[in-house]
Computed example of a mutant assay.
Amino acid sequence: MTTAVREAPHHRNLTCYTDYKCRLPECVERFHTWQHTRLRAVADGTWQPFIDATPVRQHLLKLYAAGLTPHRVSVLTGIDWNTVRLYTQAAPRQGRGMIRQTTPETAAKILAIQPEPTLPGRVDPTGTRRRIQALSAIGWPLRELGPHIGIKPDNVRRILKRGQSVYGTTAHAVSDTYNQLRNDHPSKHGVSSIGIARALRNASQHRWAPPKYWDQYPGAIDDPHFEPMYRLTRREIIAQDAHELIRFSGLSRQSAADRLGVSKAYIDHAFRDHPQYAVEAAA
């Protein structure tokens, strides 16, 4: 009977070597360096593997009050967000208590974080949603974007459905992530080919515009009044324009057709193909 080898969730600390039996060269080197440092400190009488986590807890609470999230702290430090969360609250369902002691190295990483510049509490969500959609349009699955942004993966999808606004800190984090990932292929970050294909298919179905489209219209990605025409056919554009003229200007279909330089039959066909824009002219 063989025992399955668990795949390490990441390769940033010693646990992949000690707990998951990872033997990647860089992970082996990380462990040996730590072991050498530990043995030398023991010989010198300065070995202090753990320290009180209270200062870390107090610092995290200040960061949270300033608008940062455990996910954002995870992005900035490289520490798993579940571990970050355990410094301020227990996870009884997982059988894990609140962290009371930590290593000096981990404490230094967290204590080095400073509150980010003050941002408006709530801002217009247009640019935030379009940046997420644009990354999806180049193959980024929505769930994979969460760790990069610094929010829960499920919250990425919620942003696309949310009502009137998003937090300013979230908008700022999404903008940073967009600038960092827009020129990277998702596969370089471990995203599977299946995940990439699904993201591309979903974005295509929703006609989400990629970064290259937004590059053509400086500033438009944040403009809620800019109507992207990405992958729209001429007939659909005519249907949209005719809808506006008939509904808000009170024109007949014939008058709208004259204004748009097409025949009335063309508008009839446009409304037939795109019934969501169909509207009857007033008598």
Rank of each mutant, 00 (worst) to 15 (best):
T3Y: 06
A4M: 12
A4V: 14
A4I: 15
R6H: 09
E7L: 11
D19H: 10
D19W: 06
K21I: 08
R23F: 08
C27T: 04
R40D: 10
Q48I: 12
D52N: 13
P55V: 08
T77I: 05
G78V: 08
I79T: 02
N82D: 13
R85S: 13
G95N: 10
G97I: 04
G97Y: 06
M98D: 01
E105D: 12
A107I: 08
K109L: 14
V123K: 04
D124N: 15
T126A: 00
Q133N: 02
R143G: 08
G146A: 06
P147S: 08
I149R: 03
G150V: 09
I151M: 10
K152M: 13
D154G: 10
N155D: 15
V156I: 12
S175P: 01
Q180I: 03
L181V: 00
D184T: 14
A203D: 09
Q205E: 15
Q205Y: 09
H206M: 13
Q216P: 05
A220I: 11
E227H: 13
L232W: 11
R235W: 05
R235G: 02
Q240T: 04
H243W: 11
E244A: 15
E244N: 12
E244H: 15
E244M: 13
I246A: 11
S252C: 01
A257Q: 02
L260K: 02
A265C: 02
D268W: 03
D268G: 09
A270C: 06
H274Y: 14
